[in-house]
C-alpha cells in the first residue's frame, strides 16, 4: 500500500515538474506540430488526384478524413526519446540519472506524456475544424471513438518502447541516433502515413498488416475511418499487445545488458 502511495506521489511530482518545464517551451511545441504536417501535404496531393473520380473508394472528403486522422494519430504519438537516450549514454549524462532512486525510463516517459497532454486540446480542435471544413466529418465512425482512444494509447506504448529499445543500442554503437530517421520513414510509408494501405498491391499489403508500423498508424486510423469488421478490430488490438510485449521485453533485456557495459565518459 505504501508502495502504491509512493508511486502516486513520485508520479505527481514528476508530472508537475515536467509540465511546468514544457510550458516554458510552448513555441517549440508549435514548431513540432508544423513539422508533423507531412500527412497534410499528402492529403492535398491525394485530393488533387481524386478530383476527377474516386480512387479505390476514397473521394476528396474520404482522403481528407483519412489523412487528418493520420495527422491526429501522429500528433498524439510524438516520440523523441531515441536522441535523448543516445546523447545521455554517449555523453555520460546517464550517470546522475542512475543515482536517483527511480528508473530513468519513467522521467522519459512522463516527459513524452506531458508533451502530448499539452497539445491535446489545441490539436483536437484544429483537426475537428479541418474535418468539418473538408467535409470529412460524416466519414468518421464516431461510435468507435472510445476504441480509437484506446488504440492511440496502445500505439503510443508500442512506439515508445520501440524507440527506447533502439535508443539503448547507444550502449554499443555511436550511430543509434541515425536510426530515428529510418524508423520515421518506415513508419510513415509502411504504416499508411503517406499512402493508405489498401492502395498498396495486395501481396505487399498482406505482409504489412502484421508489422508494428501498421499498429501505430493504420490500425487506429482505420477504427475511425475504415469501418473494419469486428474480427479485424480484435486482431488489431491483439497485434498491438503482441508488439508491446515484444518491445517491452527487448527494452528490458537491452537495458540490463547495456548497463553492464556502461562505463560513462572517461571511466
Amino acid at each position: 500500500m505504501s508502495d502504491l502511495r509512493h508511486a502516486v506521489r513520485v508520479g505527481r511530482v514528476l508530472f508537475a515538474a515536467t509540465l511546468s518545464l514544457l510550458a516554458e517551451y510552448r513555441a517549440e511545441l508549435a514548431i513540432w506540430v508544423v513539422a508533423g504536417s507531412l500527412p497534410l501535404i499528402m492529403m492535398f496531393a491525394w485530393i488533387g488526384i481524386a478530383a476527377d473520380r474516386p480512387i479505390a473508394g476514397y473521394d476528396a472528403a474520404g482522403f481528407a478524413a483519412y489523412f487528418l486522422t493520420v495527422f491526429y494519430v501522429r500528433q498524439m504519438t510524438p516520440i523523441w526519446v531515441l536522441g535523448v537516450l543516445d546523447r545521455a549514454i554517449r555523453k555520460g549524462e546517464l550517470s546522475p540519472m542512475l543515482l536517483r532512486p527511480l528508473h530513468p525510463f519513467w522521467p522519459h516517459a512522463v516527459e513524452h506524456i506531458s508533451a502530448v497532454l499539452m497539445r491535446v486540446p489545441a490539436i483536437t480542435l484544429f483537426v475537428a475544424a479541418a474535418l468539418w471544413l473538408a467535409g470529412g466529418l460524416p466519414r468518421l465512425d464516431l461510435l468507435h471513438l472510445p476504441l480509437f482512444v484506446v488504440a492511440i494509447l496502445l500505439a503510443w506504448t508500442v512506439l515508445f518502447n520501440l524507440h527506447y529499445s533502439f535508443g539503448l543500442l547507444a550502449f554499443w554503437t555511436d550511430q543509434a541516433a541515425a536510426l530515428q530517421g529510418l524508423i520515421y520513414t518506415l513508419n510513415m510509408i509502411f504504416g499508411g502515413g503517406l499512402v493508405p494501405l489498401d492502395l498498396f498491391p495486395p501481396a505487399l499489403r498482406h505482409i504489412l498488416l502484421y508489422t508494428p508500423f501498421r499498429c501505430v498508424i493504420d490500425f487506429p486510423v482505420s477504427l475511425l475511418v475504415g469501418r473494419p469488421a469486428a474480427t479485424d478490430i480484435a486482431f488489431g488490438f491483439a497485434l498491438q499487445l503482441l508488439w508491446i510485449a515484444i518491445f517491452v521485453g527487448l527494452r528490458r533485456l537491452l537495458w540490463r545488458r547495456g548497463l553492464q557495459r556502461y562505463s560513462a565518459v572517461g571511466a
Partner: peptide, 25 residues
C-alpha cells in the same frame, strides 16, 4: 542505407499515385 530507404519510400509513393492516376498536377 538511410538514403536508400528514404529514396525507396519516395519512389513507392510516386508509384502508388501513378498506379491510380495518369498524371499528378
Amino acid at each position: 542505407f538511410n538514403s536508400l530507404v528514404a529514396f525507396g519510400a519516395g519512389l513507392a509513393v510516386i508509384y502508388a499515385m501513378f498506379g491510380q492516376a495518369g498524371s499528378i498536377g
